[in-house]
Design a protein around this nucleic acid. Structure first.
Length: 237
DNA sequence: GCGACAG
DNA sequence: ATCTTGTCGC
């Protein structure tokens, strides 16, 4: 609904960003997926510390096979700093550019961060799902807000994340004796469906395939780009 | 006032 | 998030 151009996100102040989150919050729809998904995508950002250049990427996989079917990467700039609770304002602009270049739009997006497991229920997955009107869920490596009961050490076990009395997500052990990942629905999907689907995306690593492949993709683009710059600079001498 | 705090 | 080598454990 909020048709804001990628550039406009950059100029928001933290206070304005929070106001936008409170406005967007009214549009969140945590409801069942309408149909079984055939494709699932991972999205991530990579960057060098202290630099404004960000490398964003989205990779679409077939589901359940998890074979790559499409991908898009973009190199852009960000001036919005990382502020806990406002991550989406830093990462969404570049992700939207990659989204626009995607030849195949996925049935479900998996973002590296929270969905509704957020102080204002507006994690990056929820925000992205809303602005693209696409089912989206969050898969984070650490918790932003909420509490959960300790869960068994065995892979597959999960424990609900609560904010007071409200269930906002689940901690999921994807591998034996390894820290859990934090799953939460973002938009147009339920927590139960998010969990069921992400469990089918685990292939031996802590991080589920969509997010893991997206992370590898953007890191590759970043390091390759670093190598290019270095060689062109050296060529000047 | 103090602690917590996605990437 | 990124910078980094080896190292402890399944």
């Amino acid at each position: 609904m909020p048709l804001i151009s990628p550039e406009e996100y950059e100029n928001l102040t933290p206070v304005q960003a929070i106001e936008l989150q409170q406005q967007l919050r009214k549009e969140i729809r945590i409801e069942p997926l309408l149909k079984p998904i055939q494709t699932i995508a991972g999205a991530d950002i990579s960057f060098n510390k202290y630099e404004e250049t960000v490398y964003a990427g989205i990779i679409v996989l077939s589901f359940p096979p998890l074979q790559e079917v499409a991908k898009a990467t973009v190199i852009s700039k960000t001036s919005f700093p990382y502020i806990p609770g406002l991550l989406s304002f830093r990462e969404i602009p570049s992700l939207l550019k990659a989204w626009g270049q995607l030849e195949v739009k996925p049935d479900l997006m998996v973002l590296d961060g929270q969905g509704i497991a957020h102080p204002r229920r507006m994690g990056i997955a929820t925000h992205f799902g809303l602005v693209t009107d696409t089912p989206a869920m969050g898969c984070a490596k650490s918790l932003l807000t909420g509490k959960f009961e300790a869960l068994p050490e065995t892979a597959g076990s999960a424990s609900l994340i609560y904010d007071q009395e409200e269930v906002i997500g689940a901690a999921l052990r994807t591998k034996n004796k390894v820290n859990p990942v934090f799953i939460s629905p973002g938009h147009r999907i339920t927590l139960e469906q998010s969990l069921a689907i992400i469990k089918q995306c685990i292939s031996g690593y802590r991080i589920p395939d969509p997010t893991r492949k997206a992370h590898l993709l953007v890191n590759l683009v970043r390091t390759q780009n670093m190598g290019d710059k270095r060689s062109t600079q050296l060529d000047l001498f």
